[in-house]
Nucleic acid binder design. Structure first.
Lengths: 106, 106
DNA sequence: ATAATACGTAACCAAATGGATACGCATCAT
DNA sequence: ATGATGCGTATCCATTTGGTTACGTATTAT
């Protein structure tokens, strides 16, 4: 796949399970890098790279506190995901409704 | 990244913009492969590969109609996405609320 | 029967991804 | 001042990803 452009969308960002886990963790409050890194069986630089991706998409923000860098969840950009998934919601609710009435007609 | 296991989650599936576009198209009704392929500037085999990924995750279903294969949206599996994004919704609504009250306090 | 159509799959390939290790630079503790 | 701590970045590497062309097969048209 000779693609010249790389995809830096939020969809790509949350495709990685580690990044999703980082975001899930940050929902409980801001955390410095070491705390985030120790939660996963990966090296700290690996987590740093994940954080950079999230940072550049403004899904998290960094605040320096002495020698620590505290990361905070900035969920506004995740709205794209919610906006995209929303129309599908109607579909599967409709499907469930169809199943329900089908079962009731038995 | 020497990873032995590959990630076949729905999150990975919707990371690709072409696959999202395919799903978006299928929301307007089932379609055969050629119709889907002609909508994108990619070869038909490329679309076939995307469809296979979606098929194996049960996000779409295939129904053979003569020599055509009609693909239909099966959005139930997308619920994982909606379930994951939902808690973040509260966060950005809260952020917007904070911004609003901040602006009103000016 | 033969040709055309509608697909899937195989083989191949460049680029992107996500990991590790090595290093550098502030900042804090002593 | 010196060492330890917290973190980012550079470099390197294997794997995955997503594209292509070539080919095979089932179905429809002639």
């Amino acid at each position: 796949m000779p693609q010249a452009e790389q995809d830096r969308s939020v969809f790509r960002a949350i495709a990685d399970p580690t990044r999703r886990a980082i975001l899930d963790r940050l929902r409980q409050g801001p955390a410095p890098v070491n705390e985030l890194a120790s939660a996963f069986s990966q090296s700290r630089p690996a987590i740093s790279k994940h954080l950079r991706i999230l940072r550049e998409l403004n899904v998290v923000s960094e605040q320096r506190h002495g020698r620590e860098r505290v990361y905070r969840l900035e969920p506004a950009e995740l709205k794209d995901i919610a906006d995209w998934i929303l129309p599908y919601r109607d579909f599967w609710q409709q499907s469930l409704g169809n199943l329900k009435s089908y079962l009731e007609d038995e």
